[in-house]
């Protein structure tokens, strides 16, 4: 897991914590970006609800968004 995923990333992976149930699919698809905390919820060290996505991981991030069983993920362009 990289300590600081791309500071200049153009995409943000937003986690809706009210929807997230820590099913773990996103952490399998994006192991470089997301780990799991001790209760199984996704965690990106140094980031909270908006995780910068390096360009090379954008397709995987899109897949994670599409496969999240709780629809808890969304991708946004960074302002």
């Amino acid at each position: 897991m990289t300590a600081r995923p791309a500071a200049n990333a153009r995409l943000l992976l937003h986690i809706d914590w009210t929807a997230c149930d820590g099913r773990g699919l996103c952490t399998e698809i994006l192991p470089e970006l997301l780990g799991r905390d001790e209760w199984g919820y996704p965690i990106a060290p140094g980031h909270g609800s908006d995780v910068p996505v390096p360009d090379r991981l954008a397709p995987a991030a899109e897949e994670a968004v599409a496969l999240c069983p709780r629809l808890a993920l969304s991708l946004r362009r960074r302002d």
């Binding site: 149930d21 820590g22 099913r23 399998e28 698809i29 199984g40 897949e63 994670a64």
Partner: peptide, 13 residues
């Protein structure tokens, strides 16, 4: 899928 568990070698996704 609802259980959130993988199947043997098959990951959750």
């Amino acid at each position: 899928t609802r259980s959130g568990r993988p199947l043997l070698g098959l990951p959750r996704f």
